[in-house]
Design a protein around this nucleic acid. Structure first.
Lengths: 212, 212
DNA sequence: TGTACATCAGTGAACGCGCGTTCACTGATGTAC
DNA sequence: TGTACATCAGTGAACGCGCGTTCACTGATGTAC
């Protein structure tokens, strides 16, 4: 109980060492609890154990922190979708389904990132980095769609952009309504994973990609 | 410029006459601008031109106002979906597509209700009325699905609940990502209405409900 | 290895502000007789 | 029709609070010589 109150286990004294990282993590914890609009900059500094002025060395203001969190979220999202796609192995259909499941897994396991990415009402084109990270994530979906429809005869092939947007919408609809890891989830009598798998199968059937 | 500052054209003097209605409308205007988490009770009273204590005659607290707005939103939503369904006329397929378009129209024309309904982080089962209104809206989708698949041979018929959840997810995914009437819309090079119509057609094709 | 100094990343006090909510109150309205 | 009175729906001042942000500051770190 001296004059130095170290609260976070990672505090190293006067200089924190990795403050911006710690601020982001604390903000994610708060967002998971109270949503992206409900968390306060001041609360974050308390959680980390620094003075309320400290974050201004790392983020211009509260919005800049939010935008950075969303950017990190899309980066992580792109990585996980990409890992699930695994370059189309062992085969395009299996890898494609894995991407859909990865979408749900992200919404479930990272509700704070998910909320920051999709519900933070960030000023559109809030930063170039954010827009680029968003594109990277979407491009994994698009790549998977292109690989899947490559097997179709050319004139039965749907536009890849349209198909990617459909896939995004289906995964996103299920994830945001029924599959989130926080309090905003609506309950249904089946796992969202099964619901999405069935939805994708029916959709792919409709495209002529069924059972072959 | 006397002691009585009448701000809203509908002020009738000391007694407002229809305050709770006016509060809801003002709140909707604010939500459309700053989102469901960003609007303040105090700001609403200023917009209406009453004292900050006035709303407590009509709503227990800020959350009660939010829940009432969400409930009204789902009521309106159910009405509009139901009107689009129009008891399955002129035929089930046409009416079914109209329901999907009504979903998008609602997201576009009523972004404030839409946000209050789906992004307000209301405590789950916030009120019985809200839950019932939500069910009413969902049941329109379910009814439409049941009518559509009634034409299929029984053993090719998908579970109506699953199909309704798919339809809800597809419409909701497109509406919330690309079809909203506020700043949170992401731009795509095609109308969300077309995107949804194509998505539904492919999905119905997959169910064996195509071109007949 | 030692020291002077520049740079960096924190502090902590202070600011003005708007918030949600409470309270005792009062003006307006409606009704009983 | 007139009046007394209960009820209702507002007022406005006040409360304590946490917020985002600023400022001059200072302790810690790293580097040049």
């Amino acid at each position: 109980m001296s004059k130095s109150k170290r609260q976070g286990s990672s505090r190293r004294g006067y200089h924190h060492g990795n403050l911006s990282e710690a601020l982001v993590q604390a903000a994610l914890d708060l967002i998971a609890k109270v949503g992206p609009a409900g968390f306060s900059f001041a609360e974050v500094t308390r959680a980390v154990g620094v003075s309320p002025a400290a974050p201004y060395r790392h983020f211009r203001d509260r919005d800049a922190l939010m935008a950075d969190i969303a950017r990190r979220g899309f980066d992580k999202f792109a990585e996980e979708l990409s890992a699930a796609w695994n370059n189309g192995r062992p085969d395009a259909m299996t890898a494609f389904k894995a991407v859909g499941q990865a979408y749900l897994a992200f919404a479930r396991n990272e509700p704070a990132y998910f909320a920051a990415m999709f519900e933070a009402r960030l000023p559109p084109a809030s930063s170039r980095e954010l827009a680029e990270a968003t594109d990277r994530a979407f491009n994994v979906l698009r790549q998977a769609c292109e690989a899947l429809i490559a097997g179709l005869p050319e004139r039965k092939r749907p536009p890849a952009l349209m198909m990617s947007l459909h896939v995004w919408s289906m995964a996103h609809g299920i994830a945001s309504l029924f599959g989130r890891g926080d309090g905003a989830r609506r309950n249904i009598p089946m796992p969202p994973e099964d619901l999405l798998e069935a939805n994708m199968l029916i959709y792919l059937d409709g495209l002529g990609l069924g059972k072959d």
